[in-house]
Amino acid sequence: MQEDSDDALMRRAGSGDKAAFALLVRRHLARATALAQRITGNRSDAEEIVQEAFLRCWQKAPEWRPAERPANDRAANDRGPEGATAQFGTWLYRVLVNLCLDRRRRPQPVGIEAADTVADSAADGFDETARGETSRRVQAAMAQLPERQRAALALCYFEGLGNIEAAAMLDISIGALESLLVRARRALREALGDLAEEGGAG
């Protein structure tokens, strides 16, 4: 039996179907958390933002309607069957990215849950086992990037999204997206120049 698309699940969630919503959360939780961690660089912030994004998803579900996909959205179409789920995905990740970029303007929560997560030793939420000096340097250089540049890099490079979809998530033109990416990579090259030369062409 063919699995329900995200769009179909979202429509069912809009009718109050909690099981459909739970399936959506299960499908997107890991990727959403990873993306938020890449943008914020902080595990607790990322988890808080992901919860807020899913809350909005549930609240807005009754009104949610898939928008018309641009005819030239080849990035989404290239992914085959996944392309069919990209409308909900684009919407969810757009909400998520906006929450990540807006988070500094919001008051920070003080509560039991927040205290609990801050106490974690891996507060930035990246896998400690894979860390070496190069890894730390790359992470530090990325942390220095302006958030919009980091978000563009997270979407295009680490999540592997097409430029149309990534630009839609950031609510900018493709030209503006490319400008963010070029500036991000240039800054990283400057920060990691010695390592890049050591790595050379390899």
């Binding site: 939780l29 891996a122 860390r131 790359v138 992470q139 990691l192």
Partner: peptide, 11 residues
């Protein structure tokens, strides 16, 4: 170098 960026931990 970017490929050696740390991987976000599981939620």
């Amino acid at each position: 170098l970017l490929d050696r960026a740390p991987v976000p931990a599981a939620p």
